[in-house]
Write a protein that binds this DNA or RNA. Structure first.
Lengths: 108, 108
DNA sequence: CCCATATTTCGACGATACTGGAACTATCGA
DNA sequence: TCGATAGTTCCAGTATCGTCGAAATATGGG
């Protein structure tokens, strides 16, 4: 990932709501979640949510698919992958930074 | 690192100039660089630079020390460390994301 | 003390982002 | 085709961000 893309990805995640949306979709896995469920879980107006979903989608952090009347959103890890790589390679002091990035993950 | 802090750190880096500043300071290492040198290298007005340096400092990504007439800025890896940890643990799909962060290594 | 250097703070402006109601579009079931 | 459901797009208002010149502050030398 190049610097301008990293700025975009960072910007997309640098918002309370969008980060919450993204985390929710990461937890949801490949199945994703319909917009309505996200709106309910995060308690936000549909139009505001749609704005943030569009933002995340444009940057490539999430993707959209239609399933009957619902639009399902799911995390696409490629950009996050690139972002973490960018930060690790360009913004870390090598030994001073990398070791603590564990791969541990928690379930729901 | 908690979510609100992650949002702040992401926001601090989600800007072309601030990201450039941070990368420059990462390269500079513990010695850091005086504000004037950063301004020259990145070709930006002193007041604009100062604004961004203050932002990065407030978030904790960089730190400031005085050396005679110069204010030296240097990267502090603690927050970046925490941010990468946060992204890896909360925003990654485990196997789908972590492996490609190639420079990651174990503390063993 | 005065001047030069290094940098920050102030202030005002334009640009961009976020919000949420209302109107619109798409899909499905009867 | 009609109505209900799911979601987006539009719009306007507000808030926050970024910029940069000018003024202010801190430091050191003569």
């Amino acid at each position: 990932m190049k610097s301008p893309q990293a700025v975009e990805a960072l910007g997309a995640l640098a918002n309370e709501h969008r980060l919450a949306i993204y985390r929710l979709l990461v937890q949801a896995g490949p199945d994703g979640r319909p917009a309505g469920v996200i709106a309910e879980k995060l308690d936000m107006p549909a139009s505001s949510l749609s704005f943030h979903l569009a933002h995340l989608t444009r940057i490539g952090l999430i993707e959209q698919r239609r399933e009957s009347r619902s639009l399902i959103y799911s995390a696409d890890f490629a950009v996050m992958n690139g972002l973490i790589g960018f930060l690790t390679e360009n913004c870390c002091g090598g030994a001073a930074c990398a070791p603590a990035a564990s791969t541990r993950r928690k379930a729901s």
